[in-house]
């Protein structure tokens, strides 16, 4: 039965928008948390931690995200963790995001002049306070633009989750395309939603980059 492309069809696609935003937010939040650990490990000065975190970053930057999602989806059950698409996608995206954010923030942390950490250390500040009060506030400014830029990549990247059966924006457009036989219209609407989310973020990221380049 062919359905018409009506208000309901748009609602289905909109619910996909919601799933995409939630998935992106979770991946960004958890990826941010683990990414911070990755960045700290990468700049810890402890050889073993630096090598491990560097290998971790290299793996996730050197393989396609789709493959990472497949590995999470098919790999975790093999390791004895049965997962539904939600969990698999969340874990896959979190790992992916943590590697990328870890690398971006490593760059930010290392761009803070060494004299800053040395001055903080010379005052007796502990590692915790050196990072929190001196390094992070300065690294934050430097990392903000690429971080927002990556969040755009991540939002677009969640569309790959459709392939392992997770219903997000792309997948819901696909469903509507096949029930209404109006693929152009369905994907066109989805495209508009992606654009409406991502374009302002991209612009924002570029504005930040310009601002901080000018100040630097």
């Amino acid at each position: 039965m062919i359905q018409s492309f009506d208000y309901n069809a748009v609602l289905v696609i909109l619910s996909g928008v919601k799933a995409t935003l939630i998935l992106s937010a979770i991946a960004f939040g958890m990826g941010g948390f683990f990414g911070l650990l990755v960045a700290l490990a990468r700049t810890s000065g402890i050889k073993l931690l630096e090598r491990l975190s560097s290998a971790y970053i290299d793996f996730f930057q050197g393989t396609p995200m789709l493959l990472q999602l497949f590995l999470a989806y098919y790999g975790l059950p093999v390791l004895g963790f049965p997962v539904n698409p939600w969990t698999a996608v969340t874990i896959g995206l979190t790992l992916h995001a943590s590697a990328y954010l870890g690398e971006i923030w490593r760059g930010g942390i290392q761009a803070v002049p060494r004299g800053q950490t040395e001055a903080a250390a010379a005052l007796g500040l502990s590692y915790h306070h050196r990072m929190r009060d001196v390094v992070f506030p300065q690294a934050f400014r430097l990392s903000l633009a690429p971080t927002v830029g990556f969040s755009v990549q991540l939002i677009k990247g969640t569309s790959l989750a459709a392939i392992i059966g997770f219903v997000e924006l792309s997948r819901s457009a696909q469903i509507i395309a096949s029930t209404t036989y109006k693929p152009l219209l369905a994907y066109g609407v989805a495209g508009i939603f992606y654009f409406a989310i991502c374009f302002p973020l991209s612009m924002y990221s570029m504005r930040l980059a310009k601002k901080y380049n000018r100040e630097a």
Partner: peptide
Amino acid sequence: VARNVDAIRAEVGMVFQQFNLFPH
């Protein structure tokens, strides 16, 4: 040991050629 190092640093002030004030 970090704790010992931090304790000694707290008693020893240092002034650098490049000032190294915290710009933020």
